[in-house]
Design a protein around this nucleic acid. Structure first.
Lengths: 162, 162
DNA sequence: GCACATAGTAAAGCTTGCTTGACTATATTG
DNA sequence: CAATATAGTCAAGCAAGCTTTACTATGTGC
């Protein structure tokens, strides 16, 4: 009756990647929403802020190294850090080994907040395991990890060169 | 030596969800890049434009219905459609059944372009299947679909209510 | 036929998430 | 110690992707 329609719908439905994208998008949104709901940073933590966390060493990190890792400008990092500082999640202290530098480090509340954030991810993962089964979740992780290695074999690549 | 560090790193590494997010982000970027590279829309197709495609019926869709499906304003849709029209991917024709309405429909080149885009996704999927195996890819799809149903049981929910 | 709803458009403005350019203060190097 | 590189800041600007407000044109119910 409508061949084009059929073709497109079929192929759309078949794309594992589209499902992957959609699931990731929805789960990510859910994570941010639940995190903002349960925490009291004033609802103001946005995705770009979350992106810093994985790069924040607990000893303290320099703006410059964060910028390199995240592949954005120092100024961009500085802006995000400023927000996080206002929310008392991090603070900037002078680097004792370099008078020019400062170290961005977690405050106590920031650290516990981050741990709660990780807890949330764990919780969500367990909820999913309840749905699809522990076995499937483990397989999912394995498969995704393998894909990740293929798609981004750049483990610390940036730090080896230049 | 540094308990906090250890704790955080361990837990970060364990989060399947983080891997999921990262994989999705990287694959999505790769898809857009490869698509823009192989096609000749002038490199100008952005993620927001891609977001329309799954909602575009081949018979033609109204701006209003697109807006409802995508949960954004009519004006936002209109702007995206305008871009796509300039790139000759879609055109707007008057809706014969309603003098106020217009139908957004693919041009011929838009349709073949979209098919090529879907082909690209299929190609990428096959590449991944070569890495992790066909079996694992099938499992991945099943698991993700189940998760999707749990996380978004809103199949046409919006169209039933109101 | 009149009131009201609906499809679409036009224009302006907003937030997010960056970048670029210019500058200051401290380090390093020859 | 002079030249230069580096860490960070300040300010401005910009593109993407929206929203809000205001409007026109067409359709619908009573």
């Amino acid at each position: 009756m409508n061949d084009f329609k059929t073709t497109l719908e079929e192929r759309k439905a078949k794309s594992t990647l589209q499902v992957l994208f959609k699931v990731a998008r929805l789960l990510n949104a859910q994570a941010i929403e639940r995190s903002n709901q349960e925490q009291r940073w004033g609802q103001k933590l946005r995705p770009s802020h979350m992106a810093i966390f994985p790069h924040l060493s607990l000893k303290g990190s320099r703006i410059t190294s964060l910028a390199e890792e995240m592949q954005i400008s120092k100024q961009a990092v500085a802006q995000l850090v400023e927000d996080l500082e206002q929310l008392k999640i991090v603070r900037r202290v002078p680097d004792p080994t370099d008078g020019r530098a400062k170290l961005v480090q977690f405050t106590k509340s920031g650290r516990t907040g981050m741990l709660r954030g990780l807890d949330l991810l764990t919780t969500m993962e367990q909820e999913l395991a309840d749905i699809v089964g522990v076995r499937r979740m483990a397989d999912l992780r394995t498969t995704l990890s393998r894909i990740l290695e293929h798609v981004a074999p750049q483990h610390e690549k940036r730090f080896l060169k230049k």
